[in-house]
Write a protein that binds this DNA or RNA. Structure first.
Lengths: 118, 118
DNA sequence: TTGACACATTCCCATATAAGCATATGATCG
DNA sequence: CGATCATATGCTTATATGGGAATGTGTCAA
């Protein structure tokens, strides 16, 4: 088996930096393709291809306006990623908390008694 | 150019479901490879390969204990993902808020006056 | 109708993956 | 030392990607 398709889910779609850049740009509001091309300084076909992937995963939606295609972000599709990663945030903050605790302990020891081992 | 290497960053490493499962398992505590193999019901070489990718990205760390290699999670390496996605969480909660507002407005209209168009 | 504009699609290629299978490496025990 | 356990690595194959270049498609204006 090869790697899962980029269109398999949000995780795979978002793994590509350019696609994240596109989403970041769309977070600022709807944009036509030409606008995106200008802002990202990428060849138009490339942008269109990435947009297609994002569309297939539901991360963006299109609206036709004359001869323009206005893309907009659909942030909800990022929820699976958000949900998954949230369970881990606890872990590194905990770790920092514990570090804080250790630091406090050390300070108390330092002030209270003599230092056992320098 | 082909797709970015899976070892390019956490985004790419985590795109693979199996690798996420491994991380999920390690979130419950350190585990040796054989233990992981049993829990995930995957061929050992496959697990080892995935672990290597995770190691190269810094998502896990190893400790040698006799002839065992105990892997542990390094959650901080998920921070880039967490940081990136956090900016979007706002967007869909906002959207829900706005929906709430719309619903409230509709209810008020419904109760206050007659309905213009059913 | 013709031309310009806004996008999407197609073809091509270098690259590298995930998984399967076999085998190598390294530590431990008798 | 030889056998065994615990992991890692090597090799192969099917698959599909991102990007480049060229071209197709649909819309609007003159």
């Amino acid at each position: 088996m090869a790697r899962a398709a980029t269109t398999a889910d949000a995780f795979n779609a978002v793994a590509e930096v350019r696609r994240r850049q596109i989403l970041d740009t769309l977070a600022g509001g709807e944009r036509g393709v030409t606008d995106l091309v200008a802002r990202l300084d990428l060849p138009q076909p490339l942008v269109s291809k990435h947009l297609r992937v994002l569309r297939e995963v539901g991360l963006v939606e299109v609206r036709e306006q004359g001869r323009e295609r206005v893309y907009r972000l659909n942030a909800e599709s990022l929820k699976p990623i958000s949900d998954w990663v949230r369970n881990y945030e606890r872990l590194w903050t905990q770790r920092l908390d514990r570090l804080d605790a250790v630091v406090r302990e050390l300070k108390e020891k330092e002030q209270g008694h003599d230092s056992r081992n320098e």
